[in-house]
Design a binder for these strands. Structure first.
Lengths: 210, 210
DNA sequence: GGAATTTTACCCCATATGGGCGATTTACGG
DNA sequence: CCGTAAATCGCCCATATGGGGTAAAATTCC
């Protein structure tokens, strides 16, 4: 442990040119080390977990095993290491699959070197660097997209159902007849276009109704 | 529409000193306008929706109606407007309630003026400015925290259940006896500490098991 | 002030569900 | 080589669920 601690970075990227350029930029910057690069997830899995690497730059669209699968496999083996995805893809599926797989950063490939280095520092400081529109995608995923088709009463009942209550319990809880509760539930199913409790709850959670 | 388009910013903040300081900083910077400030959500709701405001800085801990409720009420009335929360609170509940309410940015109050202005520009450009550790909190919320207690088979069955299938349908789908399916489901319930389909699905989604 | 929505309430009935109990086979690790 | 976990199949039974009706207050909205 020296006074000026370098950040140890590794790269997983199949394109030799990009890989070497990135490595040169990073390794050539004071405060950063980049002595290990891999051209595939398969190779990275063999060696990376043994190395004292703090930040991994991971390409998403790799031939063979994808970068997403790479993070999924590697992150549990080195939980202290931060993975930043580096990609041209910005579709929702790729973004959220990457994040769910364990990535803590997500940068588009045209990120200028200065920002890339800044992002590496930021992730080490406990941040989660993302390109602007990626961050927006992530935030938007929390927003309620469609207005709830359910009435307040129905929403209330659906919440209780999701806690495992049956007609009777719900009825007692909100001082109604079990018959009435049943009617509400039937209406809920109609409005959500489902015909079972399971589907209703899944849809309600997905659409952030409860 | 002039060549140099100013960003119109409004502030909702109860502390007069902070409110005025922020307004002065923003309005005093080229490219920014801040002609409207409010000391409460109640007052903002009356006037803000009529104003051509692009970015609202919203304090979270306001007396009376909270900033979170403020966003929830105001955002639907002005969907094109971006709301940035400005607060000292960083607990998960406050952060996620704010974002779910419709905020697109979340900055801690000690953010230096230059970064605040940068964030306002960024949110206008389609980003989602967040203080570093807030961004990390958001990203972490996507990560699988606990290892799944369910076997592959059980996970597969639970997914089918969440699609509204019953014993028989699941059994046919994966070429098993309905009895076996039932046994698996019983085991799933045990492992998840629940005793109904509804609870199981809720917990599975919450814990990202399916 | 009237229409629409929400909330309340009840009936019948076929089927699904969940709990309890037992059993065999396969696969993997100590 | 043995033990454990997972996956497979089965039976009994009380209760819950979902679909089909019908209908009348209460509330909200225009």
């Amino acid at each position: 442990m020296t006074i000026t601690e370098n950040i140890h970075v590794a790269i997983v990227e199949d394109d030799p040119e990009i890989r070497q350029t990135l490595a040169l930029i990073i390794d050539g910057t004071p405060g950063f080390w980049c002595k290990h690069t891999f051209e595939s997830v398969e190779l990275a899995i063999r060696q990376l977990p043994e190395l004292p690497i703090q930040v991994v730059l991971m390409d998403v669209e790799l031939p063979g095993v994808s970068g997403i699968m790479g993070v999924k496999k590697l992150k549990p083996l080195m939980p202290e290491t931060d993975f930043i995805m580096l990609t041209i893809r910005q579709d929702d599926e790729t973004v959220f699959n990457s994040i769910c797989a364990g990535a803590t950063g997500y940068l588009v490939k045209d990120t200028p070197p200065s920002e890339l280095l800044e992002s590496i520092k930021e992730v080490r400081k406990g941040g989660a660097p993302m390109s602007a529109n990626i961050a927006r995608q992530v935030i938007l995923s929390f927003h309620q997209t469609t207005p709830s088709p359910l009435s307040d009463r129905e929403t209330e009942i659906l919440k209780l159902l999701s806690q495992g209550m049956n007609y009777r319990s719900v009825a007692e809880k909100i001082y109604l007849s079990p018959h009435t509760v049943k009617t509400h539930i039937k209406n809920i199913y109609q409005k959500l276009h489902v015909n079972s409790r399971a589907e209703a709850i899944k849809k309600a959670i997905k659409d952030k109704l409860i």
